[in-house]
């Protein structure tokens, strides 16, 4: 099993954080992992992307050119990387801002209105965790305890309350992906619950 994951979006959408959480969580679950960011001045305010490889075998190349799983947090990411996803691959679309459907029929598309769900939880900053929840539901890579453990190390002291909020975002994302409606493109950005 090897997941070649590409996560792409605007700077500030938590693209790098989704990748790091996947990589670190994967490591804690006993997999081999790598995380590779795009870097450079164009990252600021422009597009940001990172490659994450999670495998039960030694990781050869950390560069993901043909993802088995693409997380497109904005439209340019879907346009740019959508065609590179392998046949039978998975495409997770942040349908809150991506204004187009996945046209390919040889991949599975999941439309996750991350911002609407995050808004429901009262904190737009957990949108990336919503997406992670959806991805995790489909791939089954990380256990909730593992994510909780990581969040508990990240959020301590006065920020400790963010652990539960992020876990709730993870669950809501998973619930979204569990609903068949999430595989149907809708331009109303409506949240099916």
């Amino acid at each position: 099993m090897t997941h070649d994951i590409l996560i792409s979006g605007f700077g500030g959408q938590g693209v790098m954080a989704i990748g790091k959480t996947l990589a670190e969580g994967g490591m804690k679950e006993g997999y081999e992992v790598s995380w590779l960011p795009s870097y450079g001045p164009e990252m600021r305010g422009g597009t940001a992307n990172c490659s994450v490889v999670i495998s039960d075998d030694m990781i050869i190349s950390p560069i993901v050119l043909e993802p088995t799983l693409l997380i497109a947090m904005n439209t340019p990411s879907l346009v740019k990387f959508g065609p590179n996803v392998i046949p039978e691959g998975k495409v997770f679309v942040n349908s809150s801002i991506v204004d187009m459907a996945v046209e390919r029929t040889d991949v599975s598309a999941y439309y996750v209105p991350t911002m609407e769900i995050a808004q429901k939880l009262g904190n737009p900053r957990v949108a990336n965790m919503v997406m992670l929840g959806a991805v995790n539901h489909v791939t089954g890579l990380l256990r909730e305890e593992t994510v909780r453990e990581m969040l508990s190390q990240l959020f301590t002291g006065p920020k400790a309350n963010l652990v539960e909020l992020n876990l709730e975002a993870l669950r809501m994302g998973a619930a979204c992906a569990a609903n068949d409606a999430c595989m149907i493109w809708s331009n109303t950005h409506e949240y099916h619950d």
């Binding site: 990589a23 490591m27 992992v33 790598s34 995380w35 950390p62």
Partner: peptide, 10 residues
């Protein structure tokens, strides 16, 4: 190379 500097691994 820059890749080794920038990437994360266990």
């Amino acid at each position: 190379d820059g890749m080794i500097g920038q990437m994360m691994e266990a």
